[in-house]
Simulated scan of single mutants.
Amino acid sequence: MEERLELILDSIRDIKGKNIVRIDLRHLHDRPAEFFFVCEGDSTTQVSSIAGQVQKRMKVELNEVPKTVTGGRHANWICLDYFDVVVHVFYPETRKFYELEDLWSDGVVTTYDQ
């Protein structure tokens, strides 16, 4: 699991993702996944590129593809669902609107520097 988490974090950083947060949900009873990654890009192009980099590296390096990918059309919020790890890549205004970190604030939050 740790290798997957590090690969996702590194993939986000490859494309200069900002305000990266990892939420550990393992201790919650009704969790949708074990971990969430939440990050943002400065433009819809960057949001799309971050999501694409995560998908590419997960496939090439770990032979994993997401169960579902949603939100790619407008690239305001792209969600990559890898079953036990879900990656949320936001455009800043969309992230503020949904307040995902607040919704899952019972999780253990780790914030990463750029």
Rank of each mutant, 00 (worst) to 15 (best):
V86S: 01
K56T: 11
F35T: 00
F35Q: 02
D113H: 11
L28R: 07
V86P: 00
M58W: 03
L5P: 08
Y82S: 11
L80D: 03
V85R: 02
W104I: 01
K96H: 15
V60Y: 08
T110Q: 13
G52D: 14
V65C: 02
L25G: 05
C39M: 01
A75C: 10
G107P: 00
D42I: 11
K16C: 01
V69L: 05
G71W: 08
E93Q: 12
T111Y: 13
E101S: 04
Y91P: 02
D10N: 13
H88K: 01
S43W: 06
I8D: 15
G52I: 11
D10A: 12
V21I: 15
R57W: 13
D84C: 12
R73P: 00
I20R: 02
D10T: 08
T44M: 04
K56G: 05
V60C: 08
S11E: 07
K18R: 15
N19R: 07
V86W: 00
Q55R: 09
V47Y: 03
D102L: 13
V86E: 00
W104H: 00
P32T: 12
F97N: 02
I8M: 13
V108N: 12
P92S: 04
Y112Q: 01
P32L: 09
K56S: 14
R95P: 05
R95Q: 01
R26Y: 12
V47A: 05
T70Q: 14
V69N: 02
V60P: 09
T110S: 15
K67S: 03
Y112D: 02
R95F: 01
D42A: 09
D24F: 11
E2C: 03
L28D: 09
K56P: 06
F35C: 01
V21R: 13
R57A: 12
Q55M: 08
H27P: 10
T44D: 04
E101F: 04
R13W: 06
D106N: 08
K16N: 03
S105M: 06
V21Q: 15
V54G: 06
V85Q: 07
L80Y: 08
Y112S: 04
A51E: 06
L100D: 09
E6G: 08
G52N: 15
D81W: 11
D14F: 14
K16S: 05
F37I: 05
V87I: 06
D30I: 09
S48V: 08
Y91D: 00
E34N: 11
V21Y: 12
P32R: 14
R22F: 08
D113I: 08
V47M: 05
L25F: 04
E93M: 07
L7K: 01
C39R: 03
K18C: 11
G52V: 09
T111H: 14
S11I: 06
L80S: 05
Q114T: 14
L28T: 07
A33H: 01
E93R: 14
F36G: 00
